[in-house]
């Protein structure tokens, strides 16, 4: 669904993305990975509360969400976002990838889960899944 830079696809609306992680490095890294795709507009939030506010304001096509964050954690943030917008496409990205945590994230409303460290190809596949998975 998403093409790497250099493709000859016709112009289309930008893919909008909200990156939520308390780590400045992870926001930098995920932004860098997203820049490998054509026509992406990314915004950032450093915690769950910021993410809820930014989501309501920005209504991004996808959200990349960390789990372990100070204050409002990623799972609770997904719940809040999905309560207001059940069609939200949230991809959880976390080093905490044990079975129960993945199930908890999906039950909260996330469309899919990627374990850190994440690669460009894993991110591309996750974005495709987020668009095709049922809300």
């Amino acid at each position: 669904m998403f093409e790497m830079t250099g493709g000859m696809a016709p112009p289309r609306a930008p893919l909008t993305c909200l990156i939520v992680d308390d780590s400045a490095f992870m926001r930098f890294h995920l932004k860098r990975l997203m820049d490998a795709f054509d026509n992406v507009v990314a915004r950032e939030a450093a915690n769950g509360n910021e993410a809820v506010t930014e989501y309501a304001r920005f209504k991004p096509d996808i959200v990349l969400m960390d789990i372990v964050m100070p204050g409002l954690g990623g799972i609770e943030t997904v719940k809040q976002i999905c309560e207001h917008d059940p069609a939200a496409r949230v991809i959880m990205i976390s080093s905490l990838s044990y079975h129960e945590k993945v199930e908890e994230a999906l039950a909260a409303g996330a469309r899919c889960f990627v374990a850190k460290p994440v690669t460009t190809e894993q991110l591309r596949q996750a974005i495709d899944r987020a668009f095709t998975a049922a809300a």
């Binding site: 780590s23 490095f25 992870m26 080093s95 905490l96 945590k101």
Partner: peptide, 18 residues
Amino acid sequence: ESAIAELASMIIGHAIST
């Protein structure tokens, strides 16, 4: 500094998952 902290977080998070 954040990059180093995230490296630690990934190592420990992976262990905690196991």
